[in-house]
């Protein structure tokens, strides 16, 4: 299709895409390469990177393999961020769609509700939720989803408000189409592009949120994550700066790759800003 062609011509977006594919491969295949658990102490602590050939990135304060931690961290980062984004979309899209399509008091009620969630400082809410429901993959994913859906709802509502008075939608009404059909077949397909762009940026934000939670000690205690790696080596930053440095780079690269892809998608799907204007 046209969009894929446009996107594939965007080199920067393709770099982002390639990095993302690589990370997904690492997440999926990594555990087969590094069997066992990243929590295992394999060597003496504080081996700097590139010193010991079997532990390429060295070992941490407890002598655990940094590279293994990094690989397992990729899994949890991607898993939590993708799943939480999907949940946020599942909450936000129907909510925004109903509010935008029906308008009136439905819109009023749903948007007040959304506004409350948007007012609450999202990171603080995530902290409170994870803390009270005990840190676990589920509570973390749920908390991130719960603080991420309001922008989706607002975006979808805006799109529906814009599209519901488009003449093709009115024509569908005159055809006697059900509201469900109009929402799903007439309006939603035409509002997908900005949703896709937003979703790609939400995954990036979710990764940042997940790592921040883990950094504060709110990670799943069973699972090795990038944020935890940084948080646990915070006290030894003077002795072993690389222990915090390396996972941070991993986070930044992942988020950057997602943002680049998102930007590329935005240019391909919403050509408004890409500078190629019709004359």
């Amino acid at each position: 299709m046209n969009i894929i062609k446009t996107l594939s011509q965007n080199k920067v977006a393709m770099v982002g895409f390639a990095v993302l594919v690589m990370l997904i491969l690492v997440a999926v295949l990594g555990p087969y390469v590094y069997e066992g658990t990243p929590w295992k102490m394999v060597q003496r602590p504080f081996i700097p990177p590139f010193e010991n050939s079997s532990y390429l990135l060295g070992t941490d304060i407890l002598g655990r393999d940094v590279l293994a931690g990094l690989i397992y961290g990729t899994r949890i980062s991607l898993l939590v961020s993708f799943v939480s984004t999907v949940i946020a979309l599942l909450i936000g899209i129907p909510l925004g769609a109903y509010a935008g399509y029906f308008g009136g008091w439905v819109d009023e009620v749903l948007m007040r509700f959304t506004e409350i969630f948007q007012t609450v400082p999202s990171f603080a809410l995530a902290i409170v939720l994870v803390a009270i429901f005990e840190p676990s993959v589920y509570s973390i994913t749920g908390a991130i989803a719960l603080v991420s859906w309001p922008p989706v709802a607002r975006l979808v509502r805006g799109e529906f408000l814009r599209l519901r008075n488009q003449e093709y939608v009115l024509a569908a009404k005159l055809n006697g189409q059900s509201n469900r059909n109009i929402i799903l077949k007439e309006i939603l397909p035409n509002s997908l592009s900005p949703i896709i762009v937003l979703a790609s940026l939400m995954v990036a934000t979710a990764i940042l949120l997940e790592s921040s939670l883990a950094f504060l000690g709110l990670g799943d205690p069973e699972i090795m994550s990038w944020g935890y790696m940084i948080g646990s080596s915070r006290t030894v930053i003077r002795q072993a700066w690389w222990l915090s440095f390396i996972p941070g780079v991993a986070i930044a690269v992942t988020v950057l790759a997602l943002n680049l892809l998102g930007e590329g998608l935005n240019d391909a799907l919403n050509p408004k800003l890409s500078g190629k204007r019709e004359s």
């Binding site: 488009q166 003449e167 009115l170 024509a171 005159l174 055809n175 006697g176 007439e186 035409n190």
Partner: peptide, 23 residues
């Protein structure tokens, strides 16, 4: 109740670009 009457009165719209679902 309205559905059977819908087909008896139909409309042609103004905007040739906005009146057809692009997808």
């Amino acid at each position: 109740d309205l559905a059977p009457f819908r087909k008896r009165i139909q409309m042609v719209f103004q905007d040739p670009y906005g009146s057809l679902n692009p997808r």
